[in-house]
Simulated assay, not measured.
Amino acid sequence: MLKTFAELTTPLVADACVRLGVPLRPAPPGIAAVVPGHRLAGRALPVRHYGSVDIFLEALTDAGPGDILVIDNGGRLDEACVGDLMALEAKAAGLSGLVIWGLHRDTPELVEIGLPVFSYGRCAPGPVRLAEREADALVSARFGDHLITAGDVVLGDADGVLFVPADRAAEVLETARSIRETEREQARRIRAGDTLRRQTSFDDYLARRAADPAYTFRQHLRRVGGAVEE
């Protein structure tokens, strides 16, 4: 999955989801890689955190090669729920990364370990609470407004994290690749002096919109074969 995603970006994937009518499920703004430049792509391995790492160790017993641990810590900003030992354990289990709806700690060690970790940021204190575990603690994870299961894949880069249904992932990535090629050609032409306004026949769009106020730029882009927005 990471190899397939290698030449794509989350903005391209997001545009592909919109174009295909696949529900758009981004992680909340602010979730970012501990190490700038790190990327991840793989099947979601969901888990909910209640204050103890035992839930993570239990989740890893069902991990497959390349899975990504998706950790629901409720978006809390008062504790870190993952540090160096869990990152090392996840790496030893063959995971390709961790995505945390919350905070991490042991930042220098995480940088040294090299496993991609995405979170809201760093926090020195770990949890001192121990909440009651829910029945579906290893079945799904809340991540912002979204419920993530093993039926999802996770894609992350410098622009954030997206969750895509696994059964639509190949289609989404292929459409993202097509959008990328269109945008690359448009960018090449802009650099060569052919403005985006000329490429998209923007004057024609303005004339059509004047005649029909319901005519949108997205409709126009579909007609002329452009890719700027979805």
Results as ranks from 00 to 15, higher is better:
residue 42 G to H: 03
residue 67 D to I: 08
residue 211 A to P: 02
residue 167 D to E: 13
residue 153 V to N: 01
residue 138 L to C: 07
residue 36 P to N: 12
residue 200 T to K: 02
residue 230 E to C: 01
residue 195 T to C: 09
residue 170 A to N: 05
residue 221 L to S: 05
residue 104 H to C: 08
residue 179 I to F: 00
residue 169 A to K: 00
residue 154 V to G: 04
residue 140 S to K: 14
residue 105 R to Y: 05
residue 61 T to M: 12
residue 135 A to P: 02
residue 158 A to P: 03
residue 137 A to E: 06
residue 178 S to G: 04
residue 98 L to Q: 03
residue 106 D to F: 02
residue 11 P to C: 12
residue 27 A to D: 07
residue 162 L to A: 10
residue 207 A to G: 03
residue 119 S to M: 12
residue 90 A to C: 15
residue 81 C to A: 11
residue 8 L to Y: 04
residue 151 G to L: 08
residue 191 R to I: 04
residue 5 F to G: 01
residue 216 T to I: 06
residue 108 P to I: 09
residue 91 K to N: 06
residue 152 D to H: 14
residue 165 P to S: 07
residue 18 V to T: 13
residue 164 V to Q: 04
residue 185 E to K: 09
residue 221 L to T: 07
residue 87 A to H: 03
residue 206 L to N: 02
residue 104 H to Y: 08
residue 130 L to W: 08
residue 121 G to H: 07
residue 4 T to D: 09
residue 180 R to A: 00
residue 50 Y to S: 08
residue 227 A to W: 01
residue 78 D to T: 15
residue 208 R to Y: 04
residue 60 L to K: 12
residue 141 A to T: 08
residue 101 W to Q: 02
residue 121 G to W: 07
residue 115 L to A: 03
residue 177 R to H: 00
residue 157 D to P: 06
residue 136 D to R: 14
residue 97 G to N: 12
residue 153 V to K: 01
residue 203 D to C: 01
residue 228 V to N: 01
residue 48 R to A: 14
residue 15 D to C: 03
